[in-house]
Design a protein around this nucleic acid. Structure first.
Lengths: 248, 248
DNA sequence: CATAACTAGTTGTCTAGACCAGTTCGGGAA
DNA sequence: TTCCCGAACTGGTCTAGACAACTAGTTATG
C-alpha cells in the first residue's frame, strides 16, 4: 500500500500527483474510466480537498486526465505519448523515441555573443558565453546539427565537460543546479545548406526542419539559446497546446 | 478604478487574472518589475489569498509572470508574443501575425472517415464526418493548404456554413458550443507535392511545413483532425513548452 | 570590522470547512 | 407509462486562517 507521508521533503500534492500518474501509466486505470472522486481521494490519503485538487489540476493541464463538472474525473486518451511532449533536450527526446542518442562535438568554446543571440539571452552584446556545436546522432546515424549557446555565471566550466557523451540538459539541471522550467520554440521548414548537407548525410535540396529555442530557468532567466537543423525525412516535432486566458 | 465583483457569472480568480494581464499588457507593469505581493492583492481586492494565488499561478503557467520564493512575483520578458502561443485556428493565427486571413473552399462534404482519421477522432471507421479542404490566404496570398475533419453530433450542419469567410474555430466555439480546450500537434518538414505546388504558388522541390493536429473539446473528446501544408518560406510555427511532472 | 542572530516580508504548502453548479437516478404524481 | 422533482453525488469556487521555507535588511555580538 503506497501512501502519502506528511513529513519529508516532498509536498503532499506532489506525492499524490505521482501516485495518480503511476496508476494511469501502469494501466490500473484505463483511458475513459473515472478515477476516485476528489472527496474519496481526500479520505483515502488523509489530505484536504484543496491539496488533492492541486494534484489533479496539474495532471489535467498535462493532458493525462480531464474533468467533467457533476460527473467526475476521467483518464484521457492522448494521441501523442506524454514523453514526446515534455521539455527535454536532444538526448531525452531520442530516448522517448526509443532511439539511442549520440553526439559528435564539432566546436566548444567561449564566444562573444552576436546581437541576435544577446537579445535572446538577455545579455549585453559581446558578452562571453559558452557555445557548443554538435552533430547529433540517433542510433549512430546523423539526425541533427545543433548549436547551443549557454549563459550563466560560471558557464565557462562547461568547457571541461564531455559533451560527446553527456546530456547538456542533464548537466545544467544536476551539476549546475539550473532547473529548466520553460522554453519558447520556433520551427520552420527549409532546404539543406551546403555545409549542413554533408554532415547530415543529405544531398542539396533535401528538406530540413529548423528550430530555435530559448530555455528559461528560475527568475525568468534565459540560460540557453539553441538552434538546430533536423533531417526532414527522419524527425517529427510534437507539441501540445492548452487553451488559457479565455472567458468561461 | 476597476475592481472585482463578488456576484455575477465571472469567478473572482478569473477577474483578477484578466486584471493583472491588462496591467502587464498595457505596460503599467514593466518586465522585470515586481507586482504587488499576494497579501497586498488580497487586501486591495477583498479576496482571500488562495483565490489570488490561483490567478497568479495560471499567469505563471502562461509565461506572463514568474515567482521567486521569498522575493515576490515579477513580470516576465517573453521572447515570443503571447498571441502566437495560444490555441487558435488559422484565422486568429494570422491576425496575431498582423496578416489578413482568407480562404478559398476547395471541397466541403460529409465523408466516410478513413481508418487513420477514425483513430485520431476516436470514431468508428466509415463513420460520416464533415470534411473541408481550403486554400488558406494571408493578405490574399496563398499560404497553406488545409484539410479539417470535424466530428460531433450534428456536424452535418457545417455544410451550410460559409467557410470562405468564417473561422471554423470561432464557429465551433460560439455557434456549436464546443469549447476547444487543448490540441496535440505534429510538425514535419517536406517538399511540395505536385498538386500542392500549384495551389500554393510554389515550384517542385520547394520546402513546406506539414502539420497534423487533433483538437479536443470537453470530456476529452477529439472534435477536429486537421492537416495542413504551409509554404516553408512564409511560415514559422511557434510554441511554448512548460516543464511538468518532475521532482522539486 | 566581520559575523551571527533577529526580523519583517515574501512565496509554498496545507487545512477544514462552506456554498454553488451540474449530473444522475429514483420515487412519486399526473 | 410519462414526467417532474428532489436527493445524493460530482467538480468549481472561495474563505480565513496556519506554518514552513526563503530572502533581504537590520541589529547585536564577538
Amino acid at each position: 500500500m503506497s501512501g502519502i507521508v506528511k513529513t519529508g521533503p516532498l509536498p503532499r500534492y506532489y506525492q499524490l500527483k505521482e501516485l495518480l500518474r503511476e496508476k494511469v501509466r501502469s494501466g490500473e486505470w484505463m483511458p475513459g474510466t473515472a478515477i476516485p472522486s476528489e472527496r474519496e481521494l481526500c479520505e483515502q490519503y488523509g489530505i484536504s480537498r484543496m491539496t488533492a485538487r492541486q494534484s489533479i489540476t496539474e495532471l489535467v493541464r498535462e493532458g493525462l486526465l480531464y474533468r467533467e463538472q457533476g460527473r467526475g474525473t476521467f483518464v484521457a486518451q492522448p494521441r501523442i505519448a506524454q514523453q514526446l511532449l515534455r521539455l527535454t533536450g536532444f538526448s531525452e527526446d531520442m530516448q522517448a523515441r526509443h532511439q539511442r542518442p549520440g553526439a559528435k562535438v564539432l566546436t566548444a568554446e567561449m564566444w562573444s555573443v552576436d546581437p541576435r543571440t544577446a537579445d535572446r539571452l538577455n545579455v549585453k552584446p559581446s558578452h562571453p558565453v559558452f557555445r557548443v556545436r554538435r552533430l547529433r546522432l540517433a542510433d549512430a546515424q546523423p539526425l541533427a546539427l545543433e548549436t547551443a549557446v549557454v549563459s550563466f555565471a560560471g558557464c565557462e566550466r562547461l568547457l571541461d565537460e564531455d559533451l560527446a557523451h553527456s546530456s547538456l540538459y542533464q548537466l545544467l539541471e544536476t551539476k549546475y543546479k539550473l532547473p529548466l522550467l520553460a522554453a519558447e520554440q520556433e520551427v520552420e521548414a527549409g532546404l539543406t545548406q551546403e555545409d549542413e548537407a554533408e554532415l547530415l548525410g543529405l544531398g542539396p535540396g533535401d528538406p530540413v526542419l529548423r528550430t530555435r529555442r530559448v530555455t528559461y530557468s528560475e527568475r525568468g532567466r534565459p540560460v540557453e539559446y539553441a538552434t538546430a537543423v533536423y533531417r526532414g525525412d527522419k524527425y517529427t516535432f510534437y507539441t501540445r497546446i492548452v487553451r488559457d486566458g479565455v472567458a468561461l
